[in-house]
Design a protein around this nucleic acid. Structure first.
Lengths: 202, 202, 202, 202
DNA sequence: TATGAATGAGGGTTCATTCAT
DNA sequence: CATGAATGAACCCTCATTCAT
């Protein structure tokens, strides 16, 4: 997988990235139906028609945008999981905080994504599900580790992960309008709260 | 507040209910934008225009549908909270199970409602928020009671309720396609898992 | 032309008159297109469908309404022309005043009628034109009489009548919102002004 | 206020003008309600939707069309008033003839405009009233001048101007279908007739 | 590459009309 | 006689998509 070979392709690549960034933001914010290409184009100071030079249609644009968003997000979580140190509990907490922070600050968008609503076109649903699965995987690994070492205790792995994810995904709803420092406190609080889900009971 | 007084009004009332049932289902399933009146009408074996005999427009139809759904749901939770017996823990667990069961079995719709997305028209957002607030109130009351009696321990009331609600709301995503008996098991599991959020730590 | 023969027919006749009165008012006020049968029905405390018991459709209702209005108006002008006394000038002035007063106070409606717009359905246009023709006839008779007696002098009969009619028809635009006594003064003024059109020049 | 700066803008400007011309004609002819965008589009050999590329909606299209029509018309009358020579009577007559000619030949449309009916949307009514006011102003100026110089005598300025305007506005009704040379004669006749309104009486 | 222009399908809404009761 | 209910055509408007330049 070689990168762009010449100046022209590099330029095109940069343009595509700009478009995807804008698209990711809008699709995340409003959901697939509520976004119109006119808006996407306007934010890029381009005309609607120009988008078709880079993407075959609205669906493809949305797919690519979410792919980008998802890949970045996943990569950061995986990186974090790989590099974080300390006990399983410490690492799980780190992951939760990071995930929430990304969700609230960078992709408030994501709210709609993790709901996998029937509103998204089929092609997109698959990608969204896949992204969700990979995120889940990161958390699951740490959870299992903590369970095996006896550090954690859960009722059931599945429902625990689901509850965690649900709470993290919806965080933008509660925190979006808070000032930054209060957001930080809210993240901590939520992380501590969710850690109870895995705490060994007396 | 008197009910319908004669046969004609009762009949109209029934029709309105039929329409609202269909509308609630569709709006809940797909969200406001993705629903078109054609579909609503078709499910009722009627033409689009006929809906305007009962409702002033799409927004009013959606508002009424959600209002109905919300009122019923809220009433049942409040009734349950008022009549349930046992310790705070037992009652909280009962509420959780009931809420999830309603969400999954009767209003899978509701998924989108509790997200309060910017996609809903303003008038609707207000109603949805209000409904959400009332649900929250039911759970909060039991939670506070358990805390005061020392039965529960939480990191923070707010984040605990948020996490609970998030998990319950998203339950339809995981359980919708399960056979009934497995659903029941899933509900139990989720309830047990969420109870950990309030469990006193050693 | 016999009247209604029994109680039933008389009752029907009265109902028809009520409907026509309301319809004439509305059609006159708003024009054919802007009137909807719902409004007509509502003012009569009836449902839309009921109108169809008395009239075959919107067009027929409008036609009858205008017919009624026109017949009444014409009759009064003709009556006035027949009974008024004095010189041709005095009688012309009386007609003008009466016509304007009726237009402003009873059929502000008529504004749109005398414009014979292409907006009215064909069948209606014919009636409107006919009504206009009969009104014109009343004025023309007096005008010709005054001309023959040497009392009047005009550039041309046709344009004089046209200008008169135009001014009289539009009077509701200027006078509609005036208090009654000022309206009377305005009528006098307009009549005097229009009389100049036939005044013998020095 | 600079004009279009480049070829593209000029082209767009021309297209807009074409559309406005067609729109002005139709709106004038039929009134706001009776015009549908389908018709406007069809006359331009375009589809309905295309109009929205140039105008935000029906109302805006109508507004622009009337604005254009009114501005042009007003400008010509004002120009004529400024440049015409001779006595007040000669100039008034010139204005009358010109106004009628424009009304009949170029904007038979205008019939409905000068009626300012309640049918027009509010935004449009304001523009129409304003246009009417400016036209009136042109005539009033010459009238007042003639009155001050003793050349004219009127019963009242207001009703005289109203009658004049009414007659001129309705001229298209009588003349529209005449051959050109007869139209010219009709204009002369009407002008002469209306001049009697200001003639000094013996 | 990018744009301006145009398209056509679809959605919300209105309303005259019909009809069983 | 009158009503409630339903219909279907027509209208305004939006928007993804196409395409010549």
């Amino acid at each position: 997988m070689l990168g762009p070979v010449n100046r022209v392709e590099r330029k095109r690549g940069r343009r595509v990235e700009q478009i995807l960034a804008v698209a990711a933001e809008l699709f995340g914010e409003r959901g697939y139906d509520a976004v119109n290409l006119e808006d996407v184009a306007e934010r890029l100071d381009v005309t609607k028609g120009s988008l078709y030079y880079y993407f075959a249609g609205k669906e493809q644009l949305a797919t690519a945008a979410i792919e980008t968003l998802g890949t970045d997000w996943t990569a950061r979580l995986e990186e974090l999981a790989a590099t974080a140190e300390g006990s399983a509990a410490q690492r799980l907490r780190t992951l939760i905080r990071a995930h929430v922070a990304i969700a609230v600050r960078e992709y408030p968008a994501a709210l709609r994504l993790f709901l996998v609503p029937r509103t998204w076109p089929d092609a997109l649903r698959a990608r969204i599900t896949e992204m969700r699965r990979r995120h889940d995987q990161v958390f699951r690994a740490v959870l299992v580790e903590g369970l095996e070492s006896g550090e954690f205790a859960v009722v059931a792995t599945a429902s625990t992960l689901q509850a965690m994810h649900a709470a993290m995904s919806q965080a933008p709803l509660w925190c979006a309008d808070l000032p930054v420092d209060e957001q930080d406190r809210a993240f901590d609080e939520l992380a501590d709260t969710l850690m109870k889900l895995v705490s060994p009971v007396p």
